[in-house]
């Protein structure tokens, strides 16, 4: 059953998975290329760090696109095919989730291989350390978190999506009202801290994404 879902989902995900894999391999290599002629270790770190946002964006992007591909065809057919299968709805969702998550793996492995290639060139200045496993795990976790969030939203009905959008609108409107009334309270920062700060659902995306550090 899982194999059949995996095969069909490959048709809808392969372009995303292949492009993400190439990008995931390229980011560590490109970051090294930009830092190779740095004069000092500090400048080397600084140039490498400039590419750090690339990992976070790639993880979010691949998570979003793989999640969209997982549900897109079911949405088009108004879920009639899926609902007429003799399998529990929870199990069907898990099969789809598992198949999509599987297609995140090539990009995650590509980050690891790209990082190992960077280390193998011997271009990292003495005194600095490479963290290929930590970076790969972080990228993998971020991609999985992004995928899970978008998968959950995608699994819902139009009403669910509308509820999520309405919630965002309410927060923005509340911030507008707070600002207009002259109260010194930054609601958006509060929400952002809750999501991206320590312990937040999306905290894996914040902070430094470094392959090389002191």
């Amino acid at each position: 059953m899982f194999r059949a879902i995996l095969v069909t989902q490959w048709k809808w995900t392969r372009t995303t998975a292949l492009l993400a894999t190439v990008a995931a391999f390229s980011i560590p290599v490109a970051s090294l290329q930009s830092a190779r002629d740095a004069d000092t270790p500090l400048e080397f770190i600084s140039r490498m760090q400039a590419w750090g946002i690339g990992y976070a964006l790639l993880a979010a992007g691949v998570g979003l696109l793989v999640a969209l591909a997982a549900w897109g065809h079911d949405h088009q057919g108004r879920h009639v095919y899926a609902l007429s299968l003799p399998v529990s709805r929870q199990r069907y969702a898990l099969l789809r989730y598992g198949a999509g998550a599987t297609y995140l793996v090539p990009a995650i492995i590509a980050v690891l291989i790209g990082s190992l290639v960077v280390i193998a060139t011997g271009a990292i200045p003495q005194g600095l350390h490479a963290f290929p496993i930590a970076l790969t795990l972080r990228f993998g976790l971020a991609a999985l978190v992004a995928y899970s969030v978008f998968f959950a939203i995608g699994a819902g009905t139009t009403r669910t999506a509308a509820a999520v959008l309405a919630l965002i609108a309410v927060v923005l409107f509340a911030q507008f009202v707070i600002s207009a009334s002259g109260v010194q309270f930054d609601l958006l920062r509060y929400v952002a801290d809750g999501l991206f700060g320590t312990g937040g659902v999306l905290s894996v995306f914040s902070g430094r994404w470094m392959l090389v550090d002191v």
């Binding site: 069909t8 048709k11 809808w12 065809h73 057919g77 009639v80 095919y81 007429s84």
Partner: peptide, 8 residues
């Protein structure tokens, strides 16, 4: 209406 995924 046909419900099978059209890309298959």
């Amino acid at each position: 209406r046909p419900h099978v995924y059209p890309s298959l």
